[in-house]
Amino acid sequence: MCSYSIRVDNCGHYHKKLKQPCKPAKAKKEPCIPGTGEDASTSGTPSCGISGCDKKPALKREGPGARTDGGFDEDDIDWNDY
């Protein structure tokens, strides 16, 4: 199983990254199914600083704009880091 670190800002927008992939994921160079093994924390900052943020307090939410899954993109993983 892979684990992901998620940092949620006060505005509700979040940042997600791969924290630790399992051995089969490393071998295939494909992350595990998203949504498993998430380790969430809050940043304590007023807003995320992402362009387009409305800076309004909210719970975890997608965005801003077309940004989804906390900005996580499996195509951007540098497998040499693992």
Score class of each variant (00 low, 15 high):
2 C>I: 00
68 T>P: 00
61 R>Q: 08
58 A>H: 10
19 K>H: 12
68 T>C: 10
58 A>T: 07
18 L>S: 04
12 G>A: 10
22 C>K: 03
3 S>D: 01
25 A>Q: 13
33 I>N: 02
62 E>D: 14
37 G>E: 07
71 G>L: 14
77 I>K: 02
67 R>N: 02
28 K>C: 05
7 R>F: 04
35 G>D: 05
55 K>D: 14
66 A>I: 12
29 K>Q: 15
21 P>T: 00
66 A>N: 08
81 D>E: 15
48 C>P: 00
45 T>E: 14
20 Q>C: 01
9 D>E: 05
3 S>P: 04
67 R>I: 06
46 P>V: 11
44 G>K: 11
65 G>K: 15
64 P>I: 02
54 D>M: 07
21 P>V: 01
73 D>W: 02
31 P>C: 13
65 G>P: 07
9 D>C: 11
46 P>R: 03
72 F>S: 05
47 S>D: 14
73 D>R: 11
46 P>M: 09
79 W>M: 08
44 G>S: 13
80 N>R: 15
50 I>A: 06
15 H>V: 11
76 D>S: 15
27 A>V: 05
73 D>V: 09
64 P>Q: 06
2 C>G: 02
71 G>I: 14
53 C>N: 09
72 F>T: 08
71 G>V: 07
7 R>K: 15
22 C>T: 06
27 A>Q: 14
3 S>C: 03
5 S>T: 10
39 D>W: 01
23 K>D: 03
31 P>Y: 07
57 P>Y: 04
31 P>G: 02
79 W>Q: 04
58 A>M: 05
66 A>G: 05
55 K>S: 13
16 K>L: 13
17 K>N: 08
40 A>K: 02
19 K>L: 14
16 K>E: 03
32 C>L: 09
66 A>D: 10
54 D>F: 10
46 P>L: 11
4 Y>I: 04
3 S>R: 09
69 D>K: 03
17 K>V: 12
48 C>G: 06
10 N>Q: 15
51 S>W: 10
50 I>C: 12
58 A>S: 15
37 G>R: 06
79 W>E: 13
30 E>K: 13
34 P>G: 05
9 D>Q: 00
40 A>S: 01
50 I>N: 05
75 D>M: 15
35 G>L: 09
29 K>L: 04
9 D>A: 12
30 E>M: 12
28 K>F: 05
79 W>L: 12
69 D>V: 06
79 W>D: 03
73 D>E: 14
14 Y>F: 15
66 A>V: 11
63 G>P: 10
27 A>C: 12
81 D>S: 12
55 K>V: 07
70 G>D: 06
23 K>V: 12
26 K>G: 01
74 E>L: 11
21 P>D: 04
25 A>S: 15
28 K>H: 09
56 K>D: 01
12 G>W: 01
17 K>E: 01
29 K>F: 02
5 S>E: 08
73 D>L: 11
8 V>M: 05
41 S>M: 10
82 Y>K: 09
22 C>L: 03
39 D>I: 15
76 D>Y: 13
70 G>E: 05
10 N>E: 14
36 T>N: 04
56 K>A: 14
1 M>L: 06
59 L>W: 03
53 C>F: 06
4 Y>C: 04
44 G>F: 04
59 L>F: 07
